[in-house]
Structures are given as structure tokens and as C-alpha cells.
Amino acid sequence: MDKPRSNQEWFEALSNQDVQQGEALEEIRRLLLRAALYTLVTHLSDLQEMSEEERLALAEECAQEALMAVLARLGDFRGDSKFTTWAYKFGVNIALSRARRWRWKQVSLDDLADDDGTLNWFQRDERFQTADSEQPVRQKEVVEVIREVLRTQLTPRQRQTLKLIAFDDVPMDVVVQRLDSNRNAVYKLLHDARLKIKQQLVRRGYDLAEVMDLFQ
């Protein structure tokens, strides 16, 4: 077995336009295909309606797209991880995003829209039944605070995004695609929403550790 390339050898081989670059490109393409195949195998449940040929074609597409990402971002490689780990992350990221979108492509998010204004979705699976008789009362108080923040301090887009991702289990990549947005923007929507709720709970004198314990 050949000795694995060092980080420096990978970087130089892929950067220089010579015969070594061709060999390195073929080697990294092969490794990225393996990463894409491995990733898809770990998420076969997302690909249930996909034929064998489509699955293999998807892996090839993901490997090719990952190769493009590796070459485009090569200048960002700082050597603080193994080169292959750095490269694999693009293959994993692309393959999982594609798998999630495939699984959800037939689902209309309109059916999950929060259009009744009741905001019941965020507590629909709660029973508030515990051995401690005080606990359900405290849980309901907290739920009311959260409901109020949702209603009065979040934008409709924040509320909708929060509902889809945190309560309907829609993958963020699917929401990003349907909103024609990007992960950073959607993550910020969620972060801002969480922060507003946290700040309101603190402002009203709740101990956040106790609040968390109430629901665990």
C-alpha cells in the first residue's frame, strides 16, 4: 500500500498544474466518492423511493460536486486537520443535503403552515403529567410565556421557521430550499427566536436551569 500523502503533499499536488495534479485529482475524487457512498449508506432511509441506479448516480454527482468545492476552497485549507478529513466534510455535507431534500421533495410545507394562529403546535405532544403536583402548573406558566413571545415578538417568518424545524422535524436544508435562503440565515432566525424567549424568561424571573428541569 502506498504511503498516504501528507497535508503539504496534498496541497502542493492539487495546486500545481502538472502531471502530479492529475494523479492527485483522481485520488481525491476517488476518496470523495467513497465518502459520498459511505454517507448515503448511513442514511438509506432517506433514499427509499430511489432506484439503485439513481443512488449510484447521486453518489457520483455528490463526489463531483465535492471535488469542485475542495478545489474552490483549497486556499482556505490551514492544515489544522488531516487533508482528507477536511475534504471529506464537503462530500458529507453535499451528500446529506441531497439525501434530505430527496426524502422531503414530495412533501408540501404549505400543509405544515401555521395558519390558524393558535400556536398550539409547540405544545401539542405535551401531557404535563408528573408525580409532582406543582410541576404541571409551572410548566403551563412557562408555556404561556413562550407562547406570548412567539405571538408578540417573533416575525411570521421566524415563527414559521421555528415551527418547521424544531416542532415538525423538517430538516433545515429543506426549509432553506423552500425559502430560497441559506443555512446561515435560517440558523440566525432560529437563534434570534431562542434568544428572545430566553431573555423574556430571565426578565420575568425564571431560573433557566429549573425551567429546563421542568420539561426533562
Binding site: 466534510k89 455535507n93 409547540f122 405544545q123 405532544d125 405535551e126 412557562v142 408555556v143 413562550i146 424544531a166 416542532f167 422535524d169 433545515m172 443555512r183 446561515n184 440558523y187 440566525k188 437563534h191 431562542r194 434568544l195 424567549i197 430566553k198 424568561l201 433557566l208 436551569a209 425551567v211 429546563m212 421542568l214 420539561f215 426533562q216
Partner: peptide, 25 residues
């Protein structure tokens, strides 16, 4: 855990500043 329980934990763990998905990647 219910989604509400998970969400309350996420609220508890929220920081004023968090890194984006791009920075995480």
C-alpha cells in the same frame, strides 16, 4: 424527549453569540 422538551433545552443552552453553520463547517 418531546420536541417541546428539546426546544426548552435549546433555549436554556442559547448563547448571545453563536457561530453560523458556515463557520461550523
Amino acid at each position: 424527549k418531546t420536541n417541546l422538551a428539546k426546544f426548552v433545552r435549546h433555549v436554556h443552552d442559547t448563547q448571545d453569540t453563536e457561530i453560523s453553520c458556515s463557520v461550523c463547517l
